[in-house]
């Protein structure tokens, strides 16, 4: 027909080409693109999931470190507070002891003072009495009593 060897026919080649292009277009739109898109979507989904999980893990790790740090701080604080409390208690006890000491000393001093006072008072009264007796004896001597010593002893014996 066209004179080409092997019965090659340009018209039929073009028709074959047209047929294949039609098929390619159809297969691309109907099959290749939707399937490829879906595969990409799934890949993205799983990649996102993996990234998400990694982010969460990192965050958890960060939080853990933070909490550990905080815990360490709290422990130190507790230790410090404990020491403070001990020292405060010690100081309070010392102070109380000191107070008690002072009080005791004061009581003792008071008692001593009072005793001294009592003694002084007694001495005073005794002296006064002696003076009185002496004066009485003297008066009696003056009044003519003979046995001075005896009367004095009597007065003292009362």
């Amino acid at each position: 027909m066209t004179g080409l060897p092997l019965n090659i026919d340009w018209q039929q080649i073009v028709l074959h080409l047209f047929n294949f292009v039609l098929l390619s277009g159809g297969l691309y739109i109907l099959l290749y693109k939707p399937v490829a898109d879906f595969m990409k979507k799934r890949e993205d989904h799983y990649r996102e999931m993996a990234e998400d999980a990694k982010d969460k893990q990192d965050e958890a790790e960060k939080l853990r470190k933070e909490y550990e740090k905080k815990l360490e701080g709290a422990r130190e604080e507790i230790e410090q507070m404990k020491q403070e409390a001990v020292s405060t208690a010690k100081a309070a006890a010392d102070k109380q002891l000191e107070n008690a000491d002072a009080k005791a000393k004061k009581i003792l001093e008071d008692a001593k003072e009072q005793a001294e006072h009592e003694r002084d008072k007694m001495m005073e009264s005794a002296r006064e009495e002696l003076v009185n007796l002496a004066s009485e004896a003297a008066a009696k001597i003056i009044d003519g009593e003979t046995d001075v010593y005896e009367s004095f002893a009597k007065a003292a014996g009362r």
Partner: peptide, 19 residues
């Protein structure tokens, strides 16, 4: 060529059903 057109028609029909 007729085979080609037939195959194309069948394939496109199957692809449409799958789609």
């Amino acid at each position: 060529l007729i085979s080609g057109f037939t195959v194309t028609a069948i394939l496109l029909f199957i692809a449409l059903l799958i789609r």
